[in-house]
Amino acid sequence: MTSFFSGQLSHGTATRRASAATVLAVCGLVSLTACGKVIQIGDSSPSSTSAPAPANSSAAPTTAAPAQGGAGNSALQVLDSTAKDAGLNGTGGTVVGTAVQETPPKWVQLSAVTSPDLAAPHLININQAALYRFDGDSAGSGESNCNDACATKWPPVIIKDGGNVYLAGVNPKDVEAIHRADGKVQVTVGGWPVYRFSGDSGAGDLNGQGVDGKWFAVGPTGQKAVR
């Protein structure tokens, strides 16, 4: 298998840097050719569907994933390629730290890395902010149990309807989405809703790890990333 992503996490100062581990992505069992899928999110399970890849991406979608609850209908594309591969710059509209995510991003990227503070592979977003899962949720339940004040402290990883989820070191089959109580679309990994922590202000921060014994960095298949 061929690695396609590596990088560095800066920990907010010039003296604290964490090297991102080389990560691998597998498209099925045959090759590493770019692939992906279309997620249909609604009240009823959709029939299998496919859609053209974005004009600026070489990733080709495959069969849709089962729906995960929620009200109304939405669709996302999960692409086994990075935003950079698709010719995109910037953040897609994601914010960092205590900033409020006023508008869902047009796209998000999930990348698997390791760092000196956490050797187990864990996910970061395009801003290199650590991503988390909540033990108060249940994998595959189709809902988040972190709302209102909780969601202010632990902002959900949301995305605009019809947006793209780009991946580095994450298998597209493990990425889906749910409708939150407020109707926004939240990304899930391994069935677990994914969040960031408002207390992480810099790239590489892991201040949310182990908080209340229920919050942990999320691994590339949705598992807890622990030492």
Rank of each mutant, 00 (worst) to 15 (best):
4 F>A: 12
6 S>N: 14
6 S>P: 09
7 G>F: 06
7 G>I: 03
7 G>A: 15
8 Q>D: 15
10 S>H: 12
12 G>R: 07
12 G>T: 08
13 T>R: 13
14 A>C: 09
15 T>Y: 13
16 R>I: 09
22 T>W: 10
23 V>T: 13
23 V>C: 15
25 A>Q: 05
25 A>D: 01
28 G>Y: 01
29 L>W: 08
31 S>M: 10
31 S>L: 00
31 S>K: 03
34 A>K: 03
35 C>P: 04
37 K>H: 04
38 V>Y: 02
39 I>L: 14
40 Q>N: 00
40 Q>G: 11
41 I>H: 03
42 G>H: 03
43 D>W: 11
43 D>K: 04
43 D>R: 09
43 D>V: 03
44 S>L: 04
45 S>N: 13
45 S>D: 05
47 S>P: 01
47 S>H: 10
49 T>Q: 06
49 T>V: 07
51 A>C: 04
53 A>K: 02
53 A>L: 02
56 N>R: 07
57 S>H: 05
59 A>Y: 05
59 A>S: 09
60 A>V: 13
62 T>I: 00
63 T>R: 06
64 A>G: 15
64 A>Y: 04
64 A>T: 00
64 A>I: 03
66 P>N: 12
67 A>F: 03
67 A>C: 14
67 A>N: 06
68 Q>M: 14
69 G>W: 04
70 G>N: 01
72 G>I: 07
73 N>Q: 13
74 S>H: 14
76 L>F: 01
77 Q>G: 01
77 Q>Y: 06
78 V>R: 00
78 V>G: 04
78 V>I: 14
84 K>V: 07
85 D>I: 08
86 A>P: 06
87 G>M: 13
87 G>C: 09
88 L>Y: 12
89 N>K: 15
89 N>W: 14
89 N>V: 15
91 T>G: 08
94 T>N: 07
96 V>S: 12
97 G>C: 12
98 T>Q: 05
102 E>G: 03
104 P>C: 05
105 P>T: 05
105 P>S: 10
105 P>N: 03
107 W>K: 05
108 V>H: 00
108 V>L: 07
111 S>N: 12
112 A>V: 13
112 A>Y: 06
113 V>S: 00
114 T>W: 01
114 T>Y: 01
114 T>R: 13
115 S>H: 02
115 S>A: 08
117 D>G: 15
118 L>C: 06
119 A>Y: 06
120 A>F: 02
121 P>K: 05
121 P>H: 02
121 P>D: 07
123 L>N: 00
123 L>F: 03
124 I>H: 03
126 I>S: 10
126 I>A: 08
128 Q>Y: 15
131 L>G: 11
132 Y>V: 14
134 F>S: 14
135 D>G: 14
139 A>D: 10
139 A>P: 04
144 S>N: 08
145 N>F: 11
145 N>L: 14
